[in-house]
Simulated scan of single mutants.
Amino acid sequence: MFREFEPQGLVMLALTDESTGTVERFMENNEMPYPIGCGAKSARAYGVQGIPSAFLIDADGVIVWQGHPGAGGWEGMIPKLLAAARDAGPGWDPGEVPEALAKAAAAARAGKMKEAVKLAERARKAEPAAAESFLAGLGEAADRKLERARALAAEGRYFEAGERLRELEEAFKGTDWAARFSEQRLAWVKDKQAKALAALDRKRVQANADARSGKAAKAAKALAKLAEEAAGTPLEAVVRADLERARKTAAAAP
């Protein structure tokens, strides 16, 4: 599974409370394609109630699945999560490109889209078809990123969506796409319901940050209150899922 999806960006990490020596002896006799963290104390923080336990964490740092790895049901989620992760940040990976487009590709991967466009335009003379394909792919990536932000907004996660568009505006600054990102973000700012949900979503993001920093009980309390405030809105389901995770983490804490 890991070897199949690693080229697409899957990161896998094993954690154990065993000593370094024990793990080293294990690895001498077993080929492990991913790292193992020794002496881990994260079991309580993640609300682990049995061993082995597995977690799927998306590009936003949200646990989207947890349970016994042998239970199944999570394998089909990986391709979708990887696809979403590719559109989460400002960067874009065009894959293999001709040498003339190497610098443009590097800029795109780094999220420097204005520079990527400029370099691709310069490469038109040497590689016209490849440059055209590169620019078309960049445009499609921008469209997917915009749709990803809109999908977050549809769940009531307007604060997250707005912050993502701000990041994209900066990455695509000086291009036509930046204007599209800005137009959508400002439309949400002017919408009363979107603005109200953004304020609630900001509290949710802060509560989740508290949960990740060892303040799960505080986070659970804040999320419980927030669930009442978000009742009847698209954000309610998201908040309640976060609340359940925070409560599990708090219950497992010493």
Rank of each mutant, 00 (worst) to 15 (best):
M113Q: 12
S182M: 10
A105F: 01
A161G: 00
A187Q: 03
V117T: 11
A198I: 00
E132N: 12
K118F: 06
G139L: 06
S182Q: 13
A116D: 04
G156F: 12
G156K: 03
K195G: 12
E160M: 04
E163G: 13
E160K: 10
R157W: 09
L135H: 04
A207F: 02
R148A: 09
A179H: 07
G174H: 02
A131N: 05
D191G: 05
F172Y: 15
D176R: 14
A171R: 07
A198K: 10
A126I: 08
T175R: 09
K118V: 11
L165A: 02
A123N: 03
G137L: 07
E140W: 04
A108G: 01
A154G: 06
R185I: 00
K195M: 15
A196E: 12
A161H: 07
A100R: 06
D143E: 15
P128V: 00
P128R: 01
A207W: 07
A142G: 08
K118H: 11
E127C: 11
K112T: 01
R185A: 14
A126F: 08
E160R: 12
E140Y: 09
L200W: 05
R109F: 02
F134E: 11
R109K: 00
A104R: 04
F159E: 14
E132C: 00
A179V: 07
A153N: 01
K203M: 09
E169I: 12
G156S: 12
K114D: 13
L146K: 09
Q184M: 13
E140A: 15
A142D: 10
G156C: 13
E147Q: 10
E127V: 12
L200C: 04
A105S: 05
A130L: 09
A149Y: 04
W177P: 06
R180P: 05
R202W: 10
R124W: 10
K103M: 08
A196G: 08
W188C: 05
A102F: 06
L165K: 02
E167K: 15
A194D: 05
A120N: 09
R204M: 13
A207H: 08
A102R: 12
R122D: 14
R124G: 07
S133Q: 15
E183F: 09
A142Q: 00
G139A: 10
R185P: 02
R164D: 11
L135I: 02
A136M: 11
R204C: 10
P128Q: 08
R109N: 02
